[in-house]
Design a protein around this nucleic acid. Sequence first.
DNA 1: CTTTTCATTCTTGTATACAAGAAACTTGAT
DNA 2: ATCAAGTTTCTTGTATACAAGAATGAAAAG
Lengths: 203, 203
Amino acid sequence: MIFDGTFADGERLDEVQLAEKFAVSRTPVREAIQRLALSGLAEQIPRRGVFVRQPGPVELIEMFEVMAELEAVCARLAATRISDAALAELHATNERCNAAVSAQDADGYYHENEKFHAILYRQSGNSFLEQECSRLHKRLQPFRRMQLRLRGRLKQSMGEHEAIVAALEEGDGEKAASAIRSHVAVQGEKFHHLMASLKHAAE
Amino acid sequence: MIFDGTFADGERLDEVQLAEKFAVSRTPVREAIQRLALSGLAEQIPRRGVFVRQPGPVELIEMFEVMAELEAVCARLAATRISDAALAELHATNERCNAAVSAQDADGYYHENEKFHAILYRQSGNSFLEQECSRLHKRLQPFRRMQLRLRGRLKQSMGEHEAIVAALEEGDGEKAASAIRSHVAVQGEKFHHLMASLKHAAE
DNA sequence: CTTTTCATTCTTGTATACAAGAAACTTGAT
DNA sequence: ATCAAGTTTCTTGTATACAAGAATGAAAAG
């Protein structure tokens, strides 16, 4: 994958090189590369090839801002549309999150956290919105994951989750929206950590 | 194009057929088709081919809802970030819109309307958000355009534009957001018109 | 010694040939 | 007559061959 640090920013994706690396012909490699280019992970320059395009700090912040706003929309819509079953599932997921925090199980937390957000997207009652959120979430996944390694972040994140669920239970869309906005937003320490990890990824 | 009514929903895109139609080989046709599939205009089923996927009424309403929310975010962010020059440009665009309305020039109005929204996206100060908005806007373009043919819609739309600009001038993000939300939202007559046009597109 | 131009080489883009899986049709049996 | 199984045909997916444009290096001129 591009995130593994296997590919640096600006690096050219050589078709023949990748072809022999995966022991296939150029054709499927080209198709795969074009998919990358279309999803924004690489930039295609006609007759010149496609180049890996790691998002810079500015673009990352922008993406997180959009993610926060999209999730806020989900929350606002979900506040009036969410089902009781889904609310129960959010609670259950949150409890499993809590257990993971107690067990210092970062990966477990990560998994349940994913689930939490997926449920939220689904409960927006708008499957197109759900799709778009999932797409961006996936794109930000590696950067999001890094944040969880911050000291004390797990516990803090848990509290934010609970605030979100509480707002949803009250049916207060604006409260839920602002709660998730600050949950996702990149700011302060998180930003610095993000910058640091970016530097690391560039090496 | 897919919108021209050339391709009906569910129709298979035959590679060889398109290849000889455009007098090229299958390879570039395949690449083009894959691009369509990735942008959501077609669905690819492995070993079965790709099929045109016109959005149904439900999906269209969902997309318009997301568009409304995204533009609302743009407006809210723009309210604090917009430049005086951009505000002036919005005013100018709006006046040209007005002239087009007086001249019954639907195409002219359409063009200036595009500009209006483009400026708004830009002034969110978030180029990623700008990109995403433009993408969705382009996708909804044919359906949006149909709405403008509704009687009295041009004048009404104009008023909404002015309300948006006014809110931006006041720096009132929430007001601007809700103004643009109702501007873009699909409801009432607009919905029925949308449904009718969908039926027409399906024939 | 530097710069410009030409030639060679390398890479992308396109065409064609081949393989594998799916669909359709035929043939046989119940 | 209907249904099932096998075969044929058609379509997608992959490999290879070819063409065209870009980059690099060498050679010649200023």
